[in-house]
């Protein structure tokens, strides 16, 4: 429901995994395989000279510090900022507005999502099939979508639970004069497990 970029999540996990796999395998190979070990020892001297040469050539006049190191610090800071943005973008997508009517000559109408949320929650709490309910509104592809999650008492048929919520949604459609897309999430969980089993309906 939320606007989390799942492809980005998976990409980050994949890149980290690939990096660990390559580095780990290289380290293990460097000490275990004699051929790799010799090659590693040969190249490590060259790499040290090469990097020392670069640091020498890129000295900044005046301070005697290579700008390569400063660039490395700058890259690290940019990477940290990108990662913080990445974390803060998780789980977003709530919206406070359920409906906006196009402006007419008499003005415009905006219906806040709390109207729909409270109406549904009140209607659902009256039913003994549910031990709890929660209604929220998300924006999915620029359309506000209601998320109605209900926790069922043990033994309630999911079909019946869906039918009850759907009837409340139809009533809400009548009230608003417009059909809001909706998701019904029927769950069990701890609260369902510790409450009484449903009576036969």
């Amino acid at each position: 429901m939320n606007s989390t970029n799942r492809a980005a999540n998976r990409l980050l996990i994949f890149v980290c995994g690939l990096l660990l796999l390559v580095v780990g395998a290289a380290a293990a190979a460097a000490v275990l395989v004699p051929f790799v070990r010799d090659a590693w020892k040969d190249t490590s001297g060259q790499v040290t000279d090469q990097v020392a040469g670069w640091l020498e050539q890129t000295q900044l006049a005046g301070i005697g510090v290579s700008w390569l190191l400063i660039a490395v610090v700058a890259l690290l800071v940019i990477a940290i900022v990108v990662l913080i943005v990445f974390i803060s973008r998780q789980g977003r997508g709530h919206t406070g507005i359920a409906l906006t009517d196009p402006t007419s000559e008499h003005g415009s109408t905006v219906i806040e999502s709390s109207v729909a949320e409270h109406a549904l929650k009140d209607a659902l709490d009256a039913h003994s099939e549910f031990v709890g309910s929660h209604v929220s509104t998300y924006k999915v592809r620029r359309t506000p979508v209601l998320k109605v999650s209900v926790t069922c008492r043990r033994g309630v048929s999911p079909k019946d639970a869906a039918a009850i919520v759907e009837s409340k949604l139809h009533a809400l459609d009548e009230l608003l004069g417009r059909e809001l897309p909706a998701l019904i999430q029927i769950s069990g969980g701890f609260r369902a497990r510790v409450t009484k089993t449903t009576r036969l309906q």
Partner: peptide
Amino acid sequence: VIDTERAATVVDNEVIASALAR
């Protein structure tokens, strides 16, 4: 996922199991 006409509906397996058990 349950087929419903008005909304998209998802059900936890736990709920299906407890209904079947009854």
